[in-house]
Design a protein around this nucleic acid. Sequence first.
DNA 1: GTGCGGATGAACT
DNA 2: GTTCATCCGCACT
Length: 201
Amino acid sequence: MHKLPFSFYQNHDVLLLAQQLLGKQLFTFKDGQLTGGTIVETEAYHGVTDKASHAYGGRFTNRTQTMYQAGGISYVYLCYGIHSLFNIVTASQDTPHAILIRGIEPVTGIDIMLQRRRMPKLKPNLTAGPGALSQALGIDRSLNAKDLTGEELWIADSGIFFPADQVVSGPRIGVDYAGDHALLPWRFYVKGNPYVSKPHI
DNA sequence: GTGCGGATGAACT
DNA sequence: GTTCATCCGCACT
């Protein structure tokens, strides 16, 4: 289990990190249960200059303060009153870059994930989509601002590498409110992987 | 204090 | 394609 080191998250190139995270594995260990999967879809959020980012314009609130901490921790927030969305905080302190994990391919603890999702059998929507994968992994806001090199929540280098011709970039999902920034190609995903989320039509 | 709407998903027609 | 669940974060009439 090769946990990514603190230094990995300190890079200021959040677009590069969002691509490098494809193929890494996200794990949780909750209630004595290990669950995890391979990251196949990410979105980069570029700190204070990104209109789609919660930290746009330097907005610093009780919620967004997590993003301003040094990279290597989680940022989990509640969306639509229902879904806990999991992000990775990157860069150094006071640079609020973050990467939203939108899809993972389940690897470990699939039966536990099925229970948490109340699904009878494995289908892509077990972990395709940010709300879905959080539920499958047992991630909620109690896991906000957690150290990603810790024992509860971490990311490992599995040795999986997707070559550039298997990685696609495109506009981010659900950020129409961001005006011209909604079209930036800051979503990255593995071509053809069934655990990549479907854009909301 | 109040009101609006959201980095979604599922169940509908 | 449309609707709705569900509630906190945020800005400010």
